[in-house]
Design a protein around this nucleic acid. Structure first.
Lengths: 343, 343
DNA sequence: CTGAAAGCGCTTACAG
DNA sequence: CTGAAAGCGCTTACAG
């Protein structure tokens, strides 16, 4: 039915080895032969079979991107970045969302993915320690996006949580705010504690005291940010600025301020972290720390391809810089949006 | 190195055919043998090779989801829906973003995908007419998400553009608005003209005249919505309500209203279409027509799996219902968000 | 219920 | 520069 490498070889009057060579460019083929083969392929509309290639070459030209749950404001940019970098190298992207699966099943699935793809990118610290070790033992090419158990030696990619937070809080201090609170994330997440570390560091560098009552915990969600801000507004006096460890919490916090008949930034300034798309559209637009998910996706793929191609040693963690995006919630005035946002 | 079906067979003291049978459940195997085989598989931590299976069975258990460009506010929910439905049937999802590729190359890539996946979902009407015909001729299992050339007979899935628009405009009329404008999409898109059709239908049903000066064109982007609203605000009198054919245009329009020192909904009411995530966070929150991208993704995969498994005839187009999400930009009062949005 | 064997469509030493 | 041939790890008639 479908043309195979045999059909092409026959039509071109050469052996299948030769067809394979022009297909892959793995060896010199004379120009004349090459031309004959290409013509035959064109005429037959030949498509090499990916499974056969995968079996023979022991390489699939695909990368699997695994998510804990396929939701949240981040993963779309991540996928886009990964897809861009993958297609640059003629790789394909297999998406797996480990949504509601039991752990045991997950281990099975990761195994399966391992034969469908040449390497795995694990996003959002899904995989428990033992799976990681298991995958490493099997010598699966691997990179983790996000947090990683400290005692494993997997390659991993992270945003600069400490530096980003420090920059945000320093900016608030430069505005003249002195009573700066923080809504932090859950203690279990290293992302959260890194961002708190940045907050403290900024205070220390600028010579401000660190008051524990100004740090309240959230859970990275809007609702938890709303509640946390509620608690901060009961302090006397209320903080003059708040740094939230995620935009979602900042958005919740902003609603709490509105509901208390106060204004951002006049009564309380607010800065978030992440720069999710929504941050541009809050009222006022949210000043926040941009973490480049597109770039992280690209970097993850490129790094993984490196590991697939050269079996280098591993264990490094790459920190991607963040940038402070200044909008209005911090007290700065910005341009509004008719300027940009074309298309 | 890695265990194969031979390793397992040897260890279990059976033939590879038997191992294959318990792996796939394709034929009765006695309980005793089955147990032996399973134990051997466990002990060896055996993972069947996907490429070998693909080659032998001529089926890959994967579906490719192809995007014109992997961006915009929709595709993430679409991917999530597709992934959920795929994993329910033990399929995997291959993501391909036909970003900046030339058309010729795309044809090549679609061919390649065809051997890596058992079926294709084409999102956002990327594929020109001739590719579609080409794919159909090759008998590739196919479903299109979105617009489709009217003279082809591919299966396709669409939101109820006409009905959704009609419901939105009817809601505005019930609010008492009479001078209702529309910001439409580009004429080339059937989505756009379907939504305009719904607008006209609502006016007609409610006995309102259709004034051509109240319909201005946009390009589905924020900036074009901003510009379009600018033109509407020059009319005398200005419209008392505006239906925008996309949320992105509605968001641009809202900014134009603010910049003109007018208020939504007091001076102009506003309704969008799509219900992108941002719509909840505009000020005021945007009333809009929700189109269920998650559901469309799931439906697309299920439909495709049907076609893969039973080679039924094709050509139908499924219309998914939309729902009007009432927030505040239309003039209704809503609850605000501290109620919902937990986690 | 189980096995021997052919075949899926490629890649890649090995010769020449 | 080119070809003959083995092998990748499965599935699936065909026998029994």
């Amino acid at each position: 039915m479908r043309p195979t490498i045999y059909t092409v070889a026959e039509r071109a009057g050469v052996s299948i080895a030769t067809v394979s060579r022009v297909l892959n460019g793995t060896a010199r083929v004379s120009d004349r032969t090459q031309a004959k083969v290409r013509r035959a392929m064109d005429e037959l509309d030949y498509q090499p079979n990916a499974s056969a290639r995968g079996l023979a070459a022991n390489a699939t030209s695909t990368i699997a991107l695994v998510f804990p749950k396929l939701s949240g404001p981040f993963y779309s940019e991540l996928i886009r970045g990964a897809e861009i970098a993958a297609s640059e190298s003629d790789y394909h992207l297999l998406i797996y969302g480990a949504s509601g699966k039991a752990l045991g099943q997950d281990s099975q699935t990761l195994g399966m993915l391992t034969t469908k793809a040449d390497g795995l990118i694990l996003a959002g610290s899904i995989v428990s320690h033992c799976y990681l070790q298991d995958l490493q033992r099997r010598d699966v090419a691997l990179v983790v996006l996000g947090e990683v158990p400290s005692d494993t030696s997997v390659d991993c990619i992270q945003p600069d949580n400490v530096g980003g937070a420090e920059e945000a809080v320093t900016h608030l201090i430069q505005h003249g705010y002195r009573r700066i609170a923080m809504i932090r994330g859950p203690a279990s997440r290293t992302h959260a504690s890194d961002r708190e570390r940045g907050y403290r560091k900024a205070l220390a560098v600028q010579g401000l005291p660190h008051r524990t009552e100004l740090v309240v915990a959230g859970a990275f969600s809007e609702a938890s940010g709303y509640a946390a801000m509620g608690r901060l507004l009961e302090l006397e006096p209320i903080p003059d600025a708040v740094f939230a460890a995620s935009d979602q919490m900042a958005i919740g916090a902003m609603a709490a301020v509105h509901d208390a008949r106060l204004r951002v930034p006049e009564d309380v300034a607010l800065v978030g972290f992440d720069d999710i798309e929504t941050a541009q559209y809050t009222q006022p637009p949210l000043t926040t720390v941009h973490q480049d998910m597109l770039g992280q996706g690209q970097l993850a793929v490129r790094h993984l391809l490196d590991r697939i191609n050269r079996a280098e040693p591993s264990g490094e963690t790459k920190i991607l810089p963040t940038t402070l995006v200044i909008r209005r919630s911090c007290g700065c005035a910005d341009e509004g949006f008719k300027a940009g946002n074309s298309a």
